[in-house]
């Protein structure tokens, strides 16, 4: 059944799909809430909007993890993206609070 994937690559993808995507979505949510709130949206509205978006995004990312050709690129995007977005969210928060 496993035509073109080794055991290690599969485990790597499973981990990426569950934890990598989770971290990435975390980043999107944090940044999104900070950005929307910064743009003037009421805090809880921003939060709720991002929560609803979060799972659709998670779903898409999850499938992409398995559809993508290169596992390395998947990891790179997920890890890099989440780190950048978490940092950006933190920075944005400091700017808003002032």
């Amino acid at each position: 059944m496993m035509v073109s994937a080794s055991r290690g690559a599969i485990i790597s993808r499973i981990l990426a799909a569950i934890f990598g995507c989770y971290a990435f979505v975390w980043g999107v949510v944090a940044l999104g809430v900070a950005a929307l709130h910064g743009a003037g949206l009421e805090y809880h509205a921003a939060e709720q909007a991002m929560m609803m978006l979060a799972f659709l995004l998670y779903l898409g990312l999850f499938l992409w993890t398995f559809a993508a050709a290169s596992v390395r690129r998947v990891w790179l995007v997920l890890a890099g993206g989440s780190a950048v977005m978490l940092a950006a969210a933190w920075q944005l928060q400091r700017m808003i609070i002032g």
């Binding site: 944090a30 978490l86 928060q93």
Partner: peptide, 13 residues
């Protein structure tokens, strides 16, 4: 699942 308000964005919240 994504407790941003209690952690990362607590100050903002």
């Amino acid at each position: 699942y994504f407790p941003v308000s209690g952690t990362l964005l607590k100050p903002l919240h």
